[in-house]
Nucleic acid binder design. Sequence first.
DNA 1: CGTACAGTAAACCAGTCGGTTAAATAACCA
DNA 2: TGGTTATTTAACCGACTGGTTTACTGTACG
Lengths: 139, 139
Amino acid sequence: MQDHLSTTFAALADPTRRAILARLALGETNVSELAEPFAMSMPAVSKHLKVLERAGLIARGREAQWRPCRLNASPLKEAAGWIEEYRRFWTPYIDALERHLDRMKLAESTRKASATTRRKAAKPKRTGIRKRKTRSKRS
Amino acid sequence: MQDHLSTTFAALADPTRRAILARLALGETNVSELAEPFAMSMPAVSKHLKVLERAGLIARGREAQWRPCRLNASPLKEAAGWIEEYRRFWTPYIDALERHLDRMKLAESTRKASATTRRKAAKPKRTGIRKRKTRSKRS
DNA sequence: CGTACAGTAAACCAGTCGGTTAAATAACCA
DNA sequence: TGGTTATTTAACCGACTGGTTTACTGTACG
């Protein structure tokens, strides 16, 4: 796993690890207390913590025989930044407007496209996607 | 992979798939055009698309022999919502303030903790984490 | 000192992931 | 009809994941 973003998202792609982060948002604790709510062995939790640590999402210290864990949210900033780029696509009004404009622009470009040199391979004729109705199988 | 959030984050945890989403943010295309920038076979891209589709991040239609793909960002909304809960932990001022208050509260609670019945197993004495200095190996 | 406790490491296992090649499906085109 | 193009499916592979059990390392404490 090369890039920061990938390790961050991979670390977040597990409900146990997200729950651990949620717990750590309440303050630092040791491993046993983190493990307590989960129906799994300590080594399993220890592995999850290692994943979170390698993703930079937690920091671990030493306090006698305990290893206090603390949340470090800075990788989340990067992740949030990446996702944020797509906000306009889920903000309904913007999305609808955008698609409308897109369609307009397309209509216009196709109107004068007859004479244009064909670019790249196979720009499909773009009649739209039919909103999932025609997906055959895959119930 | 049970929950929505996990499948979404898992789908995002791959640079190829994020690049595909980035491409789709520019408008819908077919599979060949999506595959073009990547040094991998078509079936590999097809699998990535299937992952994205199962995560609800793209919708696929049919246009003759082409399968136009379109971005569907709504799962990102949920993901952004989850991450957003942690914003205060990476906003520096808020974070510092919060940790300060946390330390105050702790100092106070430990001051009157001598008489308290010991709760749960091993609440560590919480002298802090020493910011990664003592992590022994793991260069 | 020895014992109990907190946590990690090692070895193992089944299942998933990201990729491959080869073959199948589907639609167009001559 | 048969060929070309776009895409998916199938079978396979090596690597990684998420879990287990068992054994080890520290540290505290009686």
